[in-house]
Design a protein around this nucleic acid. Structure first.
Lengths: 155, 155
DNA sequence: CTTAATGTAACAAAGTTTGTTACAAATATC
DNA sequence: GATATTTGTAACAAACTTTGTTACATTAAG
């Protein structure tokens, strides 16, 4: 008995139906900080870090620039240069990390100009704002209870 | 017995994960459903709905297609056609709405191929998965306590 | 038959994120 | 001082997402 099953599936324009927000920045900076926290006092360079994450050293340096602005990291140029953690890992909460890379609300964005002459359109964004803020606050509160140290100690 | 299965799948532009929802789909579908809930028994057409949201009717019909798949909405073609709510608004939680539109974690996507020879890289995605899931569950639990009805009654 | 509406494919435009190249500036070591 | 190495950053390119648009087949009412 020969059963030949040919399943031919063509999926077109899949992005129309799939919500995708692509952003690895949280994953990237927590990876960087975990590496630095695990290697205190060592000047780790962007090439090495990029090799661990499997990304580009320039991306790593850009993110490290952000982390320096927060005062969490110090850099040293030149030979044997690199980056070290500038603060104890239990002084950084994941909420602070999230804040650094967050660029929209958890539930997304509001539509820009709902119709002010429609009873729903008139108030939708005010009511969404309440809902979106409440949801974000919940995430923040949870992340505030977690530190880089506790994350790092899992490794 | 010989079983030959040929699965030929052409998938264009499928992507994987996301950080913050950087889009308006949640706002759009909750707007649509609020309109329908506020006008029970009325066949509202996509043009009218689009006018309230201030977007394109085709976008609205696409989203309404998704809502129909959930069984929440019924459509009628032709003259005097349109859409009505097919279920009581207190039977739809915002968690269900979110699920329809969400395809990524709140904290974003993971880096794809962290270095398995690095102690951090080796385990980072496993540990991020735990954190990401916990955060998502929190959001989901909160939204599960809210219904379309309670949202709609604010207007 | 005409008019009006959904359903959906295909494409276009706009926007965002990630990766790359290039090079100046800084620093350690010889 | 010369050399090698590393950060800092701008400018650009590539890849990917999201939203909007056009077009038209299908359905239904009158």
């Amino acid at each position: 008995m020969i059963l030949i099953v040919i399943i031919f599936v063509t999926i077109k324009n899949i992005t129309t139906f799939v919500i995708n927000m692509n952003n690895t920045r949280f994953a990237t900076i927590i990876h960087i900080l975990t590496l630095l926290a695990k290697n205190p006092g060592e000047w780790m360079n962007s090439d090495w870090i990029a090799g661990s994450i499997n990304t580009n050293p320039v991306i790593v340096r850009k993110e490290l620039g952000v982390l320096q602005e927060q005062g969490w990291v110090t850099s040293r140029k030149g030979k044997d240069g690199g980056f070290i953690l500038n603060i104890s890992s239990d002084e950084i909460t994941l909420a602070e990390l999230y804040k650094v890379v967050k660029n929209s609300d958890v539930l997304g964005k509001k539509n820009l100009n709902p119709n002010p002459q429609c009873p729903i359109g008139k108030d939708i964004n005010k009511n969404l704002e309440t809902l979106f803020t409440e949801t974000d606050d919940l995430v923040f509160a949870s992340l505030q209870r977690k530190t880089l140290k506790s994350f790092m100690e899992q490794f």
